[in-house]
């Protein structure tokens, strides 16, 4: 019961912080809301007994993604002061696309039949996840790492085009 209430509060707070990621007028605040949202997701993982996933979420997403976003914010816009306006405001086209996406999501959620409660097939420990990655799911796992490597090389090539 207590765990359910905690989970509901966590989920609500995650949705609130996700809302402020897009609703912030100052992009820098949006980035910090995103950090809060990703951290919340990690806490939800802990509440669901998946501490390994939670730690990885913090290291990869909260730590990594946010740091890259900070660099993005700082390097792309050149202006003075602490406020970076969100350029996506007052744009009917973007609002339409976002609205359509939201409607599709709502439709998908409403038409999905209620799922039965499931028990996890593994305990979610690092040990078991590691064995699955390097056993049953070896090929998808390695294919993903090659994909990420290709993405990284692509980013370096694009970023250093001018240097040559």
């Amino acid at each position: 019961m207590l765990a359910n209430i905690a989970l509901i509060v966590l989920c609500a707070w995650t949705v609130v912080s996700a809302f402020f990621v897009v609703a912030s007028k100052n992009l820098v605040h949006g980035v910090f809301w995103l950090a809060a949202m990703l951290l919340n997701t990690a806490v939800i993982y802990i509440a669901l007994d998946a501490p390994f996933l939670a730690s990885i979420q913090v290291i990869l997403y909260t730590g990594g993604v946010i740091t890259m976003m900070l660099f993005g914010v700082m390097l792309t816009l050149r202006q003075s002061g602490t406020i970076i306006p969100n350029p996506s405001q007052h744009s009917p086209g973007r609002a339409t696309v976002a609205g359509l996406f939201g409607l599709t999501m709502l439709w998908a959620i409403w038409t999905t039949p209620e799922l039965a409660a499931m028990t996890p097939t593994t305990s979610g420990s690092a040990d078991e996840i590691g064995k699955l990655f390097l056993g049953q799911y070896m090929i998808p796992f390695e294919a993903l790492s090659v994909l990420l490597l290709a993405g990284m090389i692509g980013a370096i090539v694009l970023a250093r085009k001018g240097d040559a």
Partner: peptide
Amino acid sequence: DVGVLFVLALSGLMVF
């Protein structure tokens, strides 16, 4: 039981 990862995750947040 993932204490080492926990330590690394929190140290990574120190730049925030």
